[in-house]
Design a protein around this nucleic acid. Structure first.
Lengths: 333, 333
DNA sequence: CTGTTAGCGCGTTCAC
DNA sequence: GTGAACGCGCTAACAG
């Protein structure tokens, strides 16, 4: 790979002239400029961002650390993050923490070595297993979706509790009285808040929330399938279910189909996340849609502002989600 | 952020001693080693991979360029790629080309500036709009899934034609005679090959493939939905459909449900890709499963071998896919 | 308008 | 067992 020095020699000018031609950082006579540009092209010279980074102390690279990038919800978020970052001149390094706080720490360490300019963190693991984050003091962090207990960093999230509330209200307004909630593991904050919204709506409507109103399982389609299977086997089935994630809800719809329970005729289902698959589920899934695009952009804009030295006080932005009503909900029979 | 020099001063040793302590690259007396390690910890020193890269001409970073990372198929592939790369000591920079060859070129240019050690390329755009790839001469490339016409690089793929053939055979063996194919745009090579397998199986079985046997639309759930809607409105409906992607098939199942066409009783459906959503579709989707995990690992291993200077002749590996039979296929009524 | 030069943080050769 | 010094490719301050 050609270097600036080689280009300079070949063009018969100094290194700095080449540099200035490339960066438009001072006036260069047109003749020289053309000649240099020609040589650059001819030698297929590509400037080294590595050397540039060493000099400027900026890599124009943002780390993105998520629990699992193949989860459709995160995948969609990442796509918008990449989009926003790229348009603003940044690349992203993607890491999966696989739900384990220790792997999260290991990834972060590597990202710090690579001298990322900033980090978008969608935290992994339960709160109580969080270790210290290497390098938090030196690199701006924006937390997405979930706040880590001891971490002083900007936070962009959607109002989870409100979403759970809206979803449950929707079911109540349709006339449902016997409503269950299928949720992921209780040690994940987002899940907990969504369930909180469910409980609030229920109590507000004077509907009882018993321990068996809430069924827990893994935060996956398989988990949703299992939870629904248990739920539907009960002697007294609910007429509606609020599920704390679309992935689980999709698994649930599948289980309902297998059990010959018709949705929404016999059972209404509301999901959460509005992943792409929800729209084409059978029936199309009513769900709570967090503003993924806006969250991603806001997170990146916030982060880049910090990277540029923005000293605004810590921001904690909670965006509103919208209930998307499709065909999986209807009045009870 | 602390530097090696600062650590050295604080520890009262030379820079090179610190370096050797960190890299275990020569014997250091135990007392000094411990002291240095202590200071490193105390100062929260983290070595700079940027400086290291400049020196060694290696970034331990791999570029991953895909059409759209939020597509579940690519998302799953990326997850395995990240996994493999991380375990072998590499990070990935993720870029979306959004199906446009020119954006692909732009991304690649940036990746070259960042001096990625290698590139995993899932090519975007139609063949005829491909421009030259900046820096192909200097950086090893492994193509995944799809070969670019003029590009001499290793290729890892799954046998598309064979998959289309197996899917169609499955339908034929179930007793179907009137089989349609719903495919993505014909200018995408993968689609074309899958359709090729469909045609071969049909002809081999003496079944006519007429122009109207093949319905084309966008490579999305919406496209699949639209294609199925048109297909099901025909006076003489097929009894089975081979769909060239799960995303389209899922949209198709949704359309079938809306048209009150029962799957598989009235219509068998086979998809392609085995994305996570296929397993929990309604009914669970029979589909062709490319070995995503193996493809990702093979691609990364090949790439890293090249990065380390491997001079083996160009490898073109085509892995077998497996037909996963679920509940969306059955004999015709 | 152009050239010279001093680092950026680190690995490595050579000398002690 | 340890240190001094050079250079990776580039930017920017300074000099002309």
């Amino acid at each position: 790979m050609a270097t600036m020095k080689q280009v300079a020699e070949r063009a018969g000018v100094s290194i700095s002239t080449v540099s200035h031609v490339i960066n438009n950082t001072r006036v260069v006579s047109d003749g020289v400029r053309q000649r240099v540009l020609g040589i650059i092209d001819e030698m297929r010279y590509i400037p080294s961002a590595v050397a540039r980074s060493l000099k400027n102390d900026k890599t124009h690279t943002i780390g993105v650390l998520v629990p699992n990038s193949s989860n459709p919800y995160f995948a969609e978020l990442i796509r918008w993050i990449e989009d926003a970052a790229f348009q603003l001149g940044y690349n992203i390094i993607l890491c999966n923490a696989h739900g384990a706080a220790h792997k999260q720490t290991a990834c972060l360490r590597l990202l710090m070595e690579k001298r990322i300019d900033g980090l978008v963190l969608v935290a992994s693991g339960a709160d109580d297993e969080q270790g210290p984050l290497p390098g938090h003091e030196t690199v701006p962090i924006v937390q997405l979706e979930r706040a880590l207990p001891g971490l002083d960093a900007d936070l962009v999230q959607a109002r989870q509790e409100e979403g759970g509330y809206a979803a449950t209200r929707h079911l109540i307004e349709l006339g449902h009285r016997h409503i269950a909630c299928v949720s992921g593991p209780a040690d994940l904050p987002r899940t907990r808040e969504r369930v909180g919204g469910f409980v609030r709506a229920m109590e507000e409507a004077g509907l009882a929330v018993t321990p068996e109103s809430i069924v827990q399982d893994e935060f996956t389609s398989a988990g949703g399938h299992a939870a629904f299977t248990r739920l539907l086997a009960r002697p007294r089935r609910p007429t509606a279910v609020f599920v704390t994630s679309d992935l689980m809800a999709l698994g649930g719809l599948c289980a309902a189909g297998a059990a010959a329970v018709r949705v929404p005729a016999q059972l209404s289902v509301v999901g959460y996340d509005d992943i792409a698959g929800a729209r084409y589920a059978l029936p199309p899934l009513t769900t709570v849609a967090p503003p993924k695009h806006d969250m991603a952009w806001l997170a990146i804009e916030l982060l880049i502002d910090r990277i540029r030295g923005g000293q605004a006080p810590l921001r904690n932005t909670a965006l509103a989600s919208t209930l998307v009503v499709r065909a999986s909900t209807a009045p009870p029979q």
